[in-house]
């Protein structure tokens, strides 16, 4: 646990059948520090979600490998369930079970055999501000509420790493505010490592300690937030920050 680096990516590439260019290409070594908020930005279709799925050990890379806390994950090596369970992935379009909010938030605990943790579940629901909907069926929720339930469902597990794929896309400012607050709280209070994918540069500025920019599947800039925004190395990064890029 003393290693400050939780993720090491080695020459990761991911290709899909029938597509010539790889969807993701991260040459060399990319590291993510324990307890940090790392934000990956880039236009849609740049391969951000694919990279996040590799980090979530949902999809293996085609070539290269991932070291997660000294556990190797590649095309031929599946991580043990106990490792996989330390990472939770919040999907861009989260799907909830047609059950109560409580049952949904409790899901991660239930599958881990953790029982009688009502307080923990209630706390997670309260943190996303949905106490009044604890027993409502998820079918009755609005998009923003559903996204918050999905966040609570991920947080209740208290994972080491939380991966968020565009968690605030298409949400109104109030819901965005709640979700960003919760992300910051968890990171500061529990030292939770958070990797967040967004196309929203302002969100990256608000949250990130480390920022990466992906263009056409390639990670072209990866730096501390201050360096990324104030003295980017790659001219394309400057263009992206200025908003000059036309997609």
């Amino acid at each position: 646990m003393s290693d400050p680096i939780i993720y090491r990516l080695h020459d990761i590439a991911k290709s899909y059948r029938g597509r010539s260019a790889p969807a993701v290409l991260v040459p060399g070594v990319m590291e993510i520090r324990r307890g940090e908020i790392c934000v990956i930005v880039g236009p849609s279709g740049a391969g951000k979600s694919t990279l996040l799925r590799i980090l979530g050990m949902i999809e293996p890379p085609t070539t290269g490998w991932l070291m997660f806390d000294n556990q190797r994950y590649d095309a031929n090596t599946q991580p043990a369930l106990s490792y996989r369970r330390r990472v939770v992935y919040l999907f861009q379009r989260p799907l909830l079970l047609s059950q109560s909010v409580y049952d949904n938030v409790n899901y991660g605990l239930r599958v881990r055999g953790i029982k009688d943790e009502q307080n923990r579940v209630q706390r997670a629901i309260a943190q996303v501000g949905l106490q009044h909907l604890t027993h409502a069926n998820t079918r009755t929720l609005s998009g923003g509420e559903a996204q918050r339930v999905a966040l609570a469902r991920a947080l209740v597990i208290e994972p080491d790493i939380l991966l968020l794929d565009e968690p605030t896309a298409n949400l109104d400012p109030a819901n965005v505010e709640v979700i960003e607050r919760v992300i910051r709280e968890r990171n500061q209070q529990q030292g939770m490592t958070i990797v967040l994918v967004t196309h929203n540069l302002f969100q990256a500025r608000r949250l990130a300690q480390q920022v990466g920019l992906m263009l056409d599947g390639k990670l072209i800039e990866y730096a501390r937030a201050s360096a990324f925004f104030e003295s980017p190395v790659d001219p394309r990064t400057s263009a992206f920050i200025r908003g000059d890029m036309i997609f």
Binding site: G56, I58, L81, R84, R85, V87, V88, Y89, F91, R93, P94, L95, L97, S98, Y107, G108, V111, R112, R153, A154, I157
Partner: peptide
């Protein structure tokens, strides 16, 4: 996609299948 999401929440493959059927 529900099954993948349940798996990412730590469900075993069998458990995720069961919950999809229950859905």
């Amino acid at each position: 996609d529900l099954r993948r999401q349940l798996l990412s929440l730590g469900a075993t493959p069998l458990r995720a299948m069961w919950d999809v059927v229950f859905e």
